[in-house]
Design a binder for these strands. Structure first.
Lengths: 151, 151
DNA sequence: ACTTTACCTCAATTTAGGTTTAGGTTTTAG
DNA sequence: CTAAAACCTAAACCTAAATTGAGGTAAAGT
């Protein structure tokens, strides 16, 4: 078999990389960012607990939702240190990011409406086109909703 | 008045920057990327046609929809060169990006469902959790929809 | 035993989308 | 006429999220 270190609660970096479908260098990188943790064996090689796999899966899922690594770290830092995270721990994270995702979807839908309006207006009048006014695109003045970007 | 070069079809870079709410350096940058164009006066200073304002507005709107500058350039390149773009020209661009936005919204909504499912499953079973399997997050196998990211 | 394969560190490079800095020229206002 | 404001170019720098490379060590397969 390709890798002997299986479920022994003692995973090598190459194994984790293959199982998670990320590069070894990415695991190093995540470690420097404090997103995952490892210990070293006698020969200074990284070893991981199996739950690192779920951590990485969660990191990747959050990234697809548009969450930055920095935010992901903040949230992961709320997981208990003394025990392996359980069902409720992970569920809490999901709920949090789902809220962010909902905001993002809502933002996109508002944007879509704007664009729709703009197709109608034909962008002929600079003063009336909803896409024209640089400060009116996200509509601080129009919808009271939370902004995802501040540009 | 602050700027004399007004609507003379002959706009200075600072005027355009102020009206568009972007930095002068950004206009230089956009020009190197082929997103906008200018000619030079006697003293080698940039001059713009007024429709650059709409171009920039459109660029910024597209960026908010998540379109990259590279894609934006491709689309802007389909505008006619010989005349000032008209209502239909701009409407075509809006329609195109609106479709992309729709895809993006749909993708996010699929993702949201996944996360919802994951709250239910509690992420306890590595083999059954929809967020766990690294290759199953976007669901090539699950939904036949177009993927927005290929990671 | 030996030779791949896997691993290590540290630094540099990449991409996107700009911003900043430095040093010099042009335009405008008074 | 002079000084300030605006403009010019080229290159360096910035952040995020990695990837790549160089040079060296450890572990595994035969």
């Amino acid at each position: 078999m390709a890798h002997k270190t299986l479920q022994d609660a003692n995973l090598a970096v190459g194994y984790v990389a293959k199982r998670s479908d990320v590069n070894v260098s990415t695991l190093h990188f995540y470690e420097t960012k404090g997103l995952i943790r490892s210990w070293r064996n006698n020969g200074n090689q990284r070893r991981y607990k199996p739950d690192v796999l779920r951590r990485i899966a969660v990191i990747k899922a959050a990234q697809k939702m548009g969450v930055t690594l920095e935010e992901i770290k903040l949230t992961l830092d709320t997981l208990p240190e003394n025990r392996t995270p359980n069902k409720n721990d992970w569920a809490r994270l999901s709920t949090q990011w789902q809220a962010q995702l909902d905001e993002k979807i809502a933002y996109m839908q508002r944007l879509r409406e704007r664009v729709e309006g703009c197709i109608g207006c034909g962008c002929l009048s600079m003063s009336s086109c909803p896409l024209y006014n640089p400060n009116d695109i996200l509509g601080e003045t129009h919808s009271g909703a939370v902004l995802l970007e501040k540009d």
